[in-house]
Nucleic acid binder design. Structure first.
Length: 255
DNA sequence: ATGGCAGGTTAGACCTGA
């Protein structure tokens, strides 16, 4: 089994790249998308189905939006957190056999003094409660997505420059560690990885060329799934495309 | 170098992203 997550920063722009990427990954079972930025009525459902995939999605105009593209249809689909009323479309969960996949586009927070920052922390608190509850129902669980959290300094190209900033602040990292404390594991860190491996690079200031990035896209796996996990990679090649997303896909392989 | 770029909205700047 292979699962992946990719913040595509507009599926309207990135659909050809997504279809090409899917075709290039024959072992893939499910791709979780974030920032589709499409109302459901404009979602390219037909094109994805014609390529041989099932799809479930929850979007809105301009911002946010998530989707599950999969070989088999998802069951028990959940849109957004059941314990947090939110008009921002940031979460979609589905079940594939015994495996529960939760796809999230975590709030960015903007800055520590923004009103979006307490929203981020409240959303995270609700997510932690939801995932804890889901784990009881689905021991085989994966939480994939754009977390908008760099969990450790080694996930930051220049930690000194980022001290005290959103995405690396102590409360955000504490929330990430609470997810770990529920019994989840960072699949990327199960394996030796090259230093300075990131999943997002700023479009500005030649961020990608300088490898000035952050690792903020993650695949967390529950105990039974981390035991099956044989690899986790970030597909940096996708960031080299013409008109790329600013995020690269993350792929976890389970035997 | 606190701006740089990219996408969306909507037809000129402005908002958001991270």
């Amino acid at each position: 089994m292979q699962i992946a997550t990719w913040n595509v920063n507009s599926l309207k722009v990135r659909l050809p790249q997504v279809l090409e990427w899917l075709a290039a990954h024959p072992q893939l079972d499910c791709l979780c998308l974030q920032e589709t930025k499409l109302e459901d009525i404009n979602f390219p459902e037909a094109a994805i189905r014609e390529a041989g995939w099932q799809v479930a999605f929850a979007g809105q105009k301009t911002y946010n939006g998530v989707a599950l593209i999969s070989r088999e249809p998802a069951t028990d689909i959940q849109i957004n957190l059941p314990n947090y009323s939110d008009h921002q479309m940031r979460l979609i969960a589905g079940t594939f056999g015994e495996v529960r996949l939760i796809c999230g586009y975590f709030p960015n927070g903007q800055s520590l003094d923004s009103e979006k920052y307490p929203y981020k922390l409240a959303w995270l608190e609700a997510l932690i409660a939801y995932v804890g509850d889901q784990l009881k129902q689905y021991p085989q669980l994966a939480l994939l997505g754009d977390y908008n959290i760099a969990p450790e300094d080694r996930d930051v190209h220049d930690p000194a420059k980022w001290v005290g900033q959103v995405l690396v602040s102590e409360p955000e990292r504490a929330a990430f560690n609470q997810l770990i404390s529920l019994g989840l594991h960072d699949s990327f860190r199960k394996f030796d990885q090259p230093e300075q491996t990131f999943s997002w690079w700023d479009y500005r200031a030649a961020g990608f060329r300088r490898n000035a990035g952050l690792r903020i896209d993650h695949i967390l796996l529950s105990d039974p799934l981390i035991a099956r996990c044989t690899g986790c990679v970030i597909d940096k090649e996708a960031r080299k495309a013409e008109r790329p997303s600013d995020h690269a896909p993350v792929i976890a392989t389970l035997d």
